[in-house]
Structures are given as C-alpha cells and as structure tokens.
C-alpha cells in the first residue's frame, strides 16, 4: 500500500476547510440546524459523527473493493452501505454501553439514528467514487468528521449571539438561522485556494 503523506494532508485539509461537508456541500444540514443550540449537544453530535464516519469508512471500503466490485455487484452499493452503517451503529452502541459507559453517557443519545445522517453515508460513497486507497479513505473520513465538528461548534457560537438579537418578525426562528449559516458558509470561502498553494 503506497503511503503518500502529501496527498493525505491535501485530502485532510480539503475535507475540513475547502470542501467542508456542511457549509460547502450541504451534507448533514438537518443535524447542523437542529442540534446547534448549545455547545454541549453540538460537540456531542459532532464527535459522534466523527466517530461513526471513521468506523463506517473502515467497514465499507473493504466490502466495496473486495466483495462488491470483483463480483460485479456495484449496483448493490446503496443498499449494502446503508445496511452496514445501520448495523455498525447498533454494534458500536452495544459495545460502548458495555465497555465504555462514560463515553456512552455523553454520546449515546446521538448514536442510534446516525444511520440516516446523509453526511456519514456520503463519506463512504465519495471514498469509493474518488478511488481512494484504504488509508486515504480513513483520512478523508477523519477530515469530513472534523469539518462537521468545526462547523457545528462555530455555528453554535453564532447562534448564541443571534438568539439575543431581534430580527424582523417574519425572519424569527429558522429563517434567521439559515441566514447565519449563509454568512458562515461565506466565511469558509476564504479557504478557497488553500489546497493549491499548500505545497508551493
């Protein structure tokens, strides 16, 4: 297995900053808007997404490369990946509850329904579409998870400020939250070009 540190750094930076899953690619917008009211829950959600993304990437990559592709079963990808993620999440929940109750107490509530978090599913599919190696797939999952966590935590700070503001009546609630998300997304455009100039 080739090991190219430079390309790993590029994949990582790209996933965290330039192609941030929530703010640039609109993946995982629902939890991003729903669970970002206080820091404790947004960090918990972000960490569970990071954790499940790594596990899911590690589980789906070998299945696709060694089982589905050689047997011409590529069309089963959607069904198989969703089932793997669903099973995995259940498994992780059981293992955490038994052996690491402290972590389970803080992350447990976010785990069960990570199944249908589109960001997790998207990481596994884009790993295959980009033809990453196993290490690259893991790094991209870590990057995507960190990017999600970063966006969640920053956005929680923004929302704590907007909660004290007084927007026009019609914009109260979800519209003003979306406007703040738009401004945060604009801020992430500042990272454009970071990758190209990383190793100049």
């Amino acid at each position: 297995m080739e090991f190219d540190f430079k390309s790993l750094v590029i994949i990582m930076m790209s996933a965290v900053l330039v192609n941030n899953y929530v703010l640039r690619q609109f993946l995982g917008v629902c939890p991003f808007l729903g669970v970002s009211k206080d820091l404790k829950s947004s960090a918990g959600m972000g960490l569970s997404v990071l954790f499940v993304m790594i596990m899911a990437a590690a589980a789906t990559w070998p299945i696709q490369v060694y089982l589905l592709t050689p047997n011409g079963l590529g069309f089963m990808q959607t069904v198989v990946f969703i089932l793997i993620i669903a099973t995995l999440v259940q498994l992780v929940e059981v293992v955490l509850r038994k052996f690491l109750p402290a972590i389970f107490a803080s992350l447990g509530i976010y785990l069960p329904l990570m199944t249908t978090n589109c960001a997790v599913f998207a990481v596994t599919i884009s790993n295959i579409n980009n033809e990453y190696t196993f290490i690259e797939a893991l790094v991209s999952a870590v990057g995507a998870g960190l990017g999600f966590l970063l966006a969640m935590v920053i956005f929680t700070g923004v929302r704590e400020q907007t909660a004290a503001a007084d927007p026009p009546e019609a914009f109260k609630g979800i519209p003003i939250t979306l406007i703040s998300a738009a401004i945060l997304s604009l801020a992430f455009f500042a990272f454009e070009g970071v990758i190209e100039n990383l190793f100049k």
């Binding site: 808007l33 729903g34 669970v35 509530i109 329904l113 990570m114 199944t115």
Partner: peptide
C-alpha cells in the same frame, strides 16, 4: 428516523 438525533433531542 433521525428525529432523535436532531429536532427531538
């Protein structure tokens, strides 16, 4: 099914 992890938390 994601309700538990987002809005209904």
């Amino acid at each position: 099914p994601s309700a538990m992890s987002c809005g209904k938390l």
